[in-house]
């Protein structure tokens, strides 16, 4: 019996130690006005991905402006679907919000029953996107996009793009590129942008259909063209597809949504707060340096119009790619 008691005392000590770790993470004293406590920010993907990183970039700016923490947690699974399917079951008190991605929330519900519909999601803001871009290694024989197109015309199917997954922004961009440039290329899906860039650097593929962020994060890579309306400020020498005669403006958009039960005044307040972070010049500069393109489609007509026009074009591309019936 003695050993039992001893181990019980030790268990207590261990719990005390474990609890002690937490004392440092206490929230700041509450304020009288909204937000009174930290806001939970759920990312429907795992930690370390681009959705996580951009949320982390927003974190300090939010704290500085509104005195409350954004507490990031993760609910990964089903390419984000698991998180979005639970969004409306969460409490709509203004202290819960969730990251949202395009084209995911448009395509997933059309492919299979994933537990939510696009219209179920109450958008507050679309704040940035990572524009699609064709990336090559710095020693690639393709100096310009024309080089690549010429090669692809002479060797149908032999130009190989790596990209992140299927039915994703890069995949749809590749399908559209093939159509507009009048070529046939091969698309190889990888698990995430990082793996598709590793395949590019390892010379497994001719080019990566990836994002502008790749060129910002990886040395020894070059962009051939970006899918933006205007050139990216970080890469003033890289032409847009539009300049080259192809109407491709696309990418992976990110925004934020709240549970449906969140009252309209709270939605408005939260929207204004996110807007303030997104319009902060220092924040914008950080995002642009990272290769992102900042946009502002706020809750209401602006976000709704954007989503419906995006949905129309992305659904058409997905049908062309054979991903939707």
């Amino acid at each position: 019996m003695k050993t039992t008691r001893r181990s019980l005392v030790l268990t207590g000590a261990a719990l005390a130690f474990v609890a002690g770790i937490g004392l440092t993470a206490q929230p700041a004293p509450a304020q009288a006005e909204y937000p009174e406590k930290p806001i939970s920010y759920i990312i429907p993907f795992g930690p370390g991905g681009e959705s996580d990183i951009t949320a982390r970039l927003q974190q300090p700016f939010f704290k500085e402006k509104f005195g409350q923490d954004l507490v990031i947690s993760y609910k990964p699974g089903g390419g984000g679907a698991v998180g979005w399917a639970t969004l409306n079951t969460l409490k709509g008190d203004g202290y819960t919000m969730m990251g949202v991605n395009l084209p995911h929330i448009v395509l997933q519900p059309q492919q299979k029953d994933v537990g939510y519909k696009t219209d179920d999601i109450t958008m507050l803001y679309w704040f940035h996107y990572t524009p699609d871009a064709i990336v090559v290694t710095d020693d690639s024989p393709f100096k310009t996009l024309q080089d690549l197109i010429k090669h692809a015309k002479e060797n149908p199917g032999k130009v190989i793009f790596s990209g992140s997954g299927k039915g994703t922004a890069p995949h749809l961009a590749q399908v559209r590129f093939d159509k507009l440039a009048g070529v046939k290329t091969t698309y190889v899906p990888f698990k995430g942008t990082g793996a598709s860039v590793a395949a590019l650097m390892g010379k497994q593929v001719s080019a990566a259909m990836a994002f502008t962020t790749v060129a910002a994060n990886y040395e020894k890579t070059r962009l051939l063209a970006v899918a933006m309306e205007k050139r990216h400020p970080r890469f003033p020498d890289v032409p847009t597809f539009k300049e080259l005669g192809m109407d491709i403006v696309s990418g992976a958009y990110r925004g934020i949504a709240v549970p449906k039960s969140t009252p309209e005044p709270v939605r408005q307040k939260l929207t204004a707060m996110i807007k303030a972070v997104n319009e902060d010049p220092a924040f914008r500069k950080k995002m642009e340096e990272g290769g992102f393109a900042v946009v502002d489609y706020a809750h209401g007509k602006s976000a709704d119009d954007f989503l419906s026009s995006f949905a129309k074009s992305v659904t058409a591309s997905a049908k062309e790619a054979g991903l939707l019936k």
Partner: peptide, 29 residues
């Protein structure tokens, strides 16, 4: 008698201790 008194206490301590650890320290919702 010892077990009747102590086991429930330990059980509560473990459950609450882990609850605190997960919710506050590890920020698990």
């Amino acid at each position: 008698r010892f077990r009747v008194l102590v086991y429930p206490l330990i059980g509560i301590a473990i459950v609450l201790g882990f609850f605190y650890l997960f919710r506050e320290v590890l920020q698990v919702p």
